[in-house]
């Protein structure tokens, strides 16, 4: 059966990540949390080192350390004014520290590329199940809190006046971010997770009139990028994760050029 093929598993894994990354990525874009996402994703490398040292599952290590990083970062703030450089320090320190820690483990050097850039073609049935459970959880959380998240993103005072707690809404996003990092690391790797979060929503902006439309269009564009990237990877023998991100970058260029062209006429 075709579902047993590695390519089918890769496609399903990629689609699972794309569907969860789209709505979450919209909030990352609207709230200007790109660096926040970067820090959380880079912390995943440290999580891998920890998991290898403690001989626990990689996904548990990644989830734990990413969540810790996300909570740390969200406690110092989010709307990148003065915290911009602090986030940069945290993001790159986590990455460097993780790489150093991984080097102490023998025999994982070969795997390092897979953790940094993903290894979607080696996704197992178990990985696939993990990815879809994690993604479903993220989509459910965001769907459940959608209105509150959107109100708090628009204006915190409007949220307070309506009896919402913006800090709680932010916590939901923080949790989702750690979840997406944990499930996406196998697909695109720690270095390109932020790209999966940001590029499809950014590409969807010129095509959308409402926030809901933007999340849907982002999910569609993200899915197209996954399939196109995998196809390119298969045909031209390019690395799969970077190919997927390149495909979404191409979509971004197309929608924005198209919008600019439409404005000119």
């Amino acid at each position: 059966m075709i579902l047993d093929g590695f390519l089918a598993r890769a496609a399903l894994a990629g689609l699972g990540v794309a569907l969860a990354a789209a709505p979450l990525g919209c909030f990352v874009v609207w709230r200007r949390m790109a660096y926040f996402g970067e820090a959380t994703a880079h912390a995943a490398v440290l999580g891998i080192a920890l998991a290898l040292a403690l001989q626990t599952s990689v996904i548990a290590g990644v989830l734990g350390v990413s969540l810790a990083m996300a909570l740390t970062v969200s406690s110092v703030g989010e709307r990148g004014i003065a915290i911009d450089s602090l986030l940069g320090v945290l993001a790159h320190s986590a990455l460097a520290l993780g790489l150093v820690a991984v080097s102490f483990q023998s025999g994982v050097r070969l795997d390092l590329m897979a953790y940094l850039f993903g290894d979607i073609l080696a996704v197992s049935q178990t990985d696939l199940a993990t990815i879809w459970i994690g993604s479903a959880l993220v989509v459910a959380l965001i769907f459940w809190r959608w209105s509150g998240l959107l109100t708090a993103t628009l204006n915190r005072d409007l949220a307070y006046a309506s009896g919402l707690d913006p800090a709680r809404e932010k916590m939901i996003l923080t949790l989702c971010l750690a979840l997406v990092v944990a499930v996406a690391i196998k697909v695109v790797g720690a270095l390109l997770i932020t790209a999966m979060l940001i590029i499809p929503p950014a590409a969807a902006t010129p095509l959308s009139r409402t926030p809901e439309a933007m999340a849907m269009v982002a999910a569609a564009l993200g899915s197209i990028a996954v399939l196109a990237g995998l196809w390119a990877s298969y045909v031209y023998d390019t690395p799969a994760g970077p190919s997927i991100v390149s495909a979404s970058a191409l979509l971004f260029a197309l929608t924005h050029l198209g919008a600019a062209f439409a404005r000119q006429r």
Binding site: W30, R31, R32, T151, L154, D157, L158, A161, T210, P211
Partner: peptide
Amino acid sequence: YVPQKLAIDPTLPMTVARFLGLP
């Protein structure tokens, strides 16, 4: 609540009708 001003991120598409339905 009617705030004095509302800075909307240019990446957040929002029609008047959708805004009126929040939250």
